[in-house]
Amino acid sequence: MRPSRFRLPPGEAWRENFYGYLFISPWILGFVIFLAGPLLVSLGLMFTEYAGFKKITYVGLANFEELIKFDIRFIGSLRVSAVFAFWTVSLAIIISLAMALLLNQRFRGHTFFRGLFYLPAAVSGVAMTFVWAAMFEKDYGMFNQILRIFDFDRVAWLTSIEWALPSYIIMRLYGVGHYMVIMLAGLQSIPDDLHEAAKVDGASGLALFRHITLPLLSPTIFFLMIVGMIGSLQVFTEGFMLTQGGPARSTLFYVLYLYIVAFTERRFGYASVLAWLLFLIIMSLTLLQFWLARRWVHYESQEA
């Protein structure tokens, strides 16, 4: 049962409807033109072969057949993106949690450090990716300069099959400040009196963290998992700029592959299949997360 709503007089209701739709009309236009319309068109394109400008051929289920039976690049790119998303998100959550716990101590200057820790997330982008290319250089990049100090061998960061993907994970983790800020806000929303009460009961620091902080922080962690996973499944800029999928397709991210099929090979039909699959993957991951969350995420209101 919905709670009974305050009823407006008829003239007033008409007015609210009119102005309501007037104010949201830009969004409705955008939704129809740039979202719902294109979604339907790409749904149709899945059953065609289309290179853009002249003729369009209906091919039935041929695109799906190719996807399942013949496309090695597709399987590879799916694996690359999954490995990348898994490591990026789990490492980012652990590191950002540690950083947030540190800053939550509220020592003098903690806001300065918060700003400093977030800075890399703010400057990431094309310019920074450009600089990463130089830092990962085998002969004179920053990382190998550092390794030399500790007498380690040089690593062929972006040019070797085993190190290329980890290099991208390092790049992503540099922006961990974004996770940290959200994690910190989650920590600060935990009421102090809970900690105080547990301390009075003689709980140790570790027990405090395990039984109070972590459960109360779980909605935040859960949110970061979803958002982080969706974000890292869509990574494109870095991959396109630095390695274009190489060496030996070890960094062929899913969206990078999608871009190549669509705009380099100009196979719009097949690319639409890949795009819709990405949509389905992201949607089901989100739903799965929501379902799993019911088991281990603690929401304050459930206790009441």
Partner: peptide
């Protein structure tokens, strides 16, 4: 308070799930 506000806002939130690559070609 217009008719269908909650449904439409739910759709707004739902659109965040749609990766822009899906709409890119059309």
């Amino acid at each position: 308070r217009f008719v269908g506000r909650n449904v439409l806002f739910f759709i707004v939130l739902g659109t965040m799930m749609v990766p822009m690559q899906v709409t890119a070609i059309p």
